[in-house]
Write a protein that binds this DNA or RNA. Structure first.
Lengths: 123, 123
DNA sequence: TCAATAGTTCAATAAACATTGAACATAGGA
DNA sequence: TCCTATGTTCAATGTTTATTGAACTATTGA
């Protein structure tokens, strides 16, 4: 349970898998929250997403996000830290992640996404 | 069987549905082919996609693309003409469709998408 | 009127998906 | 050493999805 899980290489990132990952509201919210957090810290840990779903359900969604190449997981003690693989995404599909994030931001209310203030609260 | 099927209004277009639609390789190929065709004609009919799947399967995918707001269907005789709802997509999610299409173009081989030449052959 | 063409509808099927809770593993602090 | 916090794994469940073929509808042209 302690080792770093496998991640696809940059070249292994596939468009349909990425789009499928982003099409789920919970996963989109995870990605959005990570993106919002970036100015503060590029990482968040699992517990920071507890509002979005139950623990084991989050583990499932994290695995999908990792498997498609959107997120990286780093293990540290009992925590797993997540960050967006921005550079790899941008290299593979220029402009895609930004376009999705901007679209999500436009519909933040409709998608029930956390606002900046919610995200940056103390941990 | 002859009337124009229902389409969502611009405002009813939802990001998760759009992304989900585009995450299927067959639907992505349909959208891509429509986009490639645009300089020649903004419309294609069902039969132009026969290479991608069986007829009833295509009907299924067309319905999904229509329901999410990506495509418009126009009925004319025994034909149904499809076109991309570019303006509506651009209004709702600026830059998104272009980013996806560019990403798809980059991976055209991997995604087995028709090249420009294939698409623009005589009909 | 008849046949061919274009596409839809429906039912059946198998696979994938999201969700849940219980049991488990691991690291760190009292 | 034991307790707690963090997160994973596994099995079970119900839902949605993609795909197929057969039957059907509607329009066009001979």
């Amino acid at each position: 349970m302690s080792r770093t899980p496998p991640h696809p290489t940059r070249d292994q990132i596939e468009l349909p898998l990425v789009l499928d990952c982003l099409s789920d509201p919970i996963r989109l919210a995870i990605v959005y929250q990570l993106a919002q957090q970036e100015p503060v810290s590029s990482e968040l840990c699992c517990g920071d997403f507890n509002g979005l779903a139950g623990k084991s359900n989050l583990t499932y969604h994290f695995a999908k996000l990792r498997d498609c190449g959107l997120m990286q997981t780093r293990v540290s003690g009992t925590n797993r830290f997540m960050r967006l693989r921005r550079d790899d995404l941008e290299a593979r599909f220029p402009g895609l992640l930004d376009a999705v994030l901007k679209s999500a931001a436009k519909d933040a209310d409709r998608l029930q996404l956390a606002s900046g203030c919610d995200v940056v609260e103390a941990g």
